[in-house]
Design a protein around this nucleic acid. Structure first.
Lengths: 112, 112
DNA sequence: CAAAATTGTCGGTTAAAATCGACATATAAC
DNA sequence: GTTATATGTCGATTTTAACCGACAATTTTG
């Protein structure tokens, strides 16, 4: 995956935010009294990657993190992360001039 | 990466949550009137992966998503995603019995 | 209309993510 | 103490994410 300049050494704020998220996920799991192996099986991933996510590993896929949120019933919060309605800076800029929608050549319904 | 059962076909709720997050990230970028190439260079990633993140690709690393939030000044919201203080289900369970630490199972101190 | 800018896509390369098995080290329970 | 459970770590393998360059398709601008 390339020499992953971002993946290996992310900005400090990114690193700390991920560590905090990982710690929160661990707390959520322990409160629910389930093991790494249990939740890993439930989301269809290996036990290792779940442990790495709980440590805030930056190069771990967002699917792992999101599936953990989902298994704890917290996934709907993800969609409000960059919610345009609460993006104050964006709202301010949008009120000045909304940049017309960028190119989207073909629907191409991406299903990864 | 293994046959990535989760990465290729995540739960429906996970998929939709990621697509919504990606769309929000795109809106945030367009409002700020910057290009994919600009933000990619700013976070130290390739233009492609940023575009993929804006499509909600599950197998993309969380570092990309988080760096985008960071570049838009929204990264602090990530840490509150699974915030133990607002995890109602977790709080309810924690009030019953906290699994971590809390050794010495309190041999039943029913006073009176 | 054409030119410019933005975004999408393709082929090829490289580094590493994710998996599995087995074992070591906590941690909790007996 | 001992046993059982949970988590961390290691090596090896397979899959592929992320990179780069170039080009195609799209949208915006003049």
């Amino acid at each position: 995956m390339g020499r992953g300049h971002l993946l290996s050494t992310p900005p400090y704020e990114v690193e700390t935010a991920l560590k905090r998220l990982g710690a929160n996920l661990r707390t959520a799991r322990l409160r629910r009294n389930i093991t790494l192996a249990d939740v890993a099986k439930r989301i269809g991933a290996s036990r290792e990657v779940v442990g790495e996510a709980e440590h805030g590993k930056p190069s771990t896929s967002i699917a792992i993190y999101t599936a953990l949120l989902w298994s704890y019933g917290l996934v709907e919060r993800l969609g409000s992360l960059a919610d345009p309605a609460t993006d104050d800076e964006g709202l301010r800029l949008a009120s000045l001039r909304e940049r017309r929608n960028a190119s989207t050549p073909q629907p191409l319904d991406d299903d990864f």
